[in-house]
Amino acid sequence: MTARQVRPRTRALALCGAVGLSLALTGCGGSSDDTKPPAAPPAAPPAASSAAPDPSASPADPDAVVKAAVLEVYTSMWVEQMKAYRVASPDGTKLADFATLDALSAFERDLAHMKRNGTVIRGELGHESEVTELDLEAKVPTATVEDCIDLSKWQTLDTKTNKPIPLPTAQPLRYVATATVERWDNNRWMVTEYKPDGSRSC
């Protein structure tokens, strides 16, 4: 059994502090041809076999539907996680519907730490996520999601002083996080592991 590897798409990203995505655009244009057509048509039509193949006829990604389902669960997890971070509590959220095992335990520890220290989150957390690996042949089908986390609009607030707490000076504003997502017996994808890696910028 082999895992299907998905090559990550190339991103041209703005550096620390930027809020936008810098896109490298390339264009192609044909040059005009001023040569006049011959006065008479050719004696015979060109052979049909000389037509070039249509480059747009390449097959679609066979795993597109699966990848979309994985990313939908991953995105939903973060929507609920941000709700929890804003009040330092998972109460009233659906976080457990999308994250479980190590991932859920790690998030719950973060929330408990925030509650003890009287902090909550304001602003938004930026994401650029993609499925980089699929293993649908395993006993438990597994996907790997890589996400570029953007902290440029993220703010930790001290609830006692109602003032923002600056990020550590060594904290990168953009870094890579990796999530493991598994498809369980009920045919539902769940995030089971989440690992931020501050040493990998994006």
Rank of each mutant, 00 (worst) to 15 (best):
V145D: 09
L111D: 10
T132L: 02
T93A: 09
V140G: 00
V70H: 01
E137M: 05
D135K: 04
S129M: 14
C148R: 05
T156Y: 02
A99Y: 07
M114S: 06
V65T: 03
L95N: 05
E72M: 08
E146G: 00
T132Y: 03
V65E: 06
D135F: 03
T142A: 01
K83H: 13
D91G: 11
P62M: 02
I149L: 08
A64V: 02
A84M: 09
L104I: 08
E133V: 03
A138K: 05
A103W: 06
C148N: 06
L151N: 08
D91A: 15
G123H: 12
R86Y: 13
K67D: 03
A103D: 09
G118Q: 12
D158W: 12
T142C: 01
T119D: 08
D147L: 04
A84F: 11
W154H: 11
A138N: 02
K115C: 07
D63H: 08
P141N: 12
T142W: 00
L136E: 11
G118Y: 10
G118V: 13
L125I: 14
Y74D: 13
A99D: 07
V66H: 00
D135V: 02
V79L: 13
V66S: 01
L95I: 09
A99P: 15
K160T: 14
R109G: 07
D63G: 00
Q81P: 02
S152V: 15
S76F: 06
S89P: 03
R86G: 12
V140K: 00
V66L: 02
E80M: 11
A88P: 04
V65S: 04
G123L: 13
T100P: 00
V140F: 01
F98K: 06
R122M: 12
V70E: 02
A84E: 12
F98T: 04
S152M: 09
A96R: 06
E80L: 11
D150P: 01
D147F: 03
R116P: 01
A68N: 08
E128S: 09
